[in-house]
Design a binder for these strands. Structure first.
Length: 283
DNA sequence: TCCTCCCTGTTC
DNA sequence: GAACAGGGAGGA
């Protein structure tokens, strides 16, 4: 389940494959994989990929028209890809046939003229792609309300993002609060900060908020260093698994012993998500 | 603010 | 053959 560290790793491994390439063709094999507000992928051929970035859990390909192209204003300038649970971006040789879970693909021409093919494969079919102009992107509520990047967040700003009486874990999972945190890193950060995931946000004092932000940054940075976490499906653009799953303090470890205090870890549900925490270390 | 649904492979 | 995994959309 790609979250911020996994998406960051995909961006880093994908960039050398696609940056500077020109899009020569696009094919959609499953219409629901294209966001309803997206421009048709038919509008992509002719555009060059000038950059590969991340915003929250979104992979962003920056697009630029060829120098001679008119009407550039109506062409997409960004291709936003959300991997959701099982999405993968896979650089492959030109002409390779799509697999059973290929949802869309791009035919690319590298700067040296080599043809390549970029597959978007997604078994669960939750992932989406959104081709947009900057104006259109702002019509996408999810994009417009996306919260700040946690790794660049200052304590005062984090504090302003936190409000309401819901559980702190529910707040961390809300992409409007911070962008890019999912079930794994919410649980891991809360354990590292020693905070019970069910605690109401309003109950957290200034010291706890500072501790939580620091823990979140630590966990995300460590996971990026390990190229993310691979539970089952996640792979980077080179097909490699991450390694941070070997360092999980709590995620997926309900009933096992806490690595800090030895007490058995508890499981519960918060915000409809499986949640694991240590009843002794997290208060 | 919380719940259900979407989707499919894996596990029990 | 059902429960489960879960981010986000949409409705209660």
């Amino acid at each position: 389940m790609p979250e911020l560290p996994e998406v960051e790793t995909v961006v880093r491994t994908l960039a050398p494959h696609v940056q500077g390439s020109r899009i020569r063709g696009a094919e959609v094999l499953r219409a629901s994989a294209v966001h309803p507000l997206s421009l048709p992928l038919d509008s992509l051929p002719g555009l060059g990929i000038t950059g590969v970035r991340r915003r929250g859990k979104l992979i962003l390909l920056d697009l630029a028209p060829a120098a001679e192209a008119a009407m550039a204003g109506s062409l997409p300038s960004i291709l936003a890809v959300h991997l959701r649970m099982t999405g993968r971006l896979l650089p492959r040789p030109a002409g390779m046939a799509p697999g059973p879970y290929t949802r869309w693909l791009l035919d690319l021409e590298k700067p040296d003229g080599t043809p390549r093919r970029l597959f978007f494969d997604d078994t669960r079919a939750f992932g989406t792609v959104f081709a947009a102009t900057p104006d259109l992107l702002m019509q996408w509520e999810f994009w417009r309300s996306l919260g700040p990047e946690p790794l660049e967040l200052k304590p005062a700003a984090f504090d302003r993002q936190l409000s309401g009486r819901r559980a702190i874990k529910a707040a961390l999972l809300d992409q409007k609060v911070v962008a890019g945190v999912g079930n794994i890193y919410a649980d891991e950060a809360l354990h590292r900060a020693g905070i019970d995931p069910r605690r109401p946000v309003a109950e957290l004092g200034p010291a706890e908020r500072r501790r939580l932000l620091a823990a979140l940054k630590d966990v995300l940075a460590l996971a990026i260093d390990q190229c993310g976490s691979s539970i089952r499906d996640y792979r980077d653009a080179d097909g490699n698994a991450g390694a941070f799953q070997n360092s999980f303090a709590v995620y997926g470890r309900a009933g096992e012993s806490c690595r800090t205090c030895g007490k058995p870890l508890s499981g519960c549900r918060v915000a409809g998500r499986a949640t694991v925490f240590c009843p002794r270390c997290q208060r």
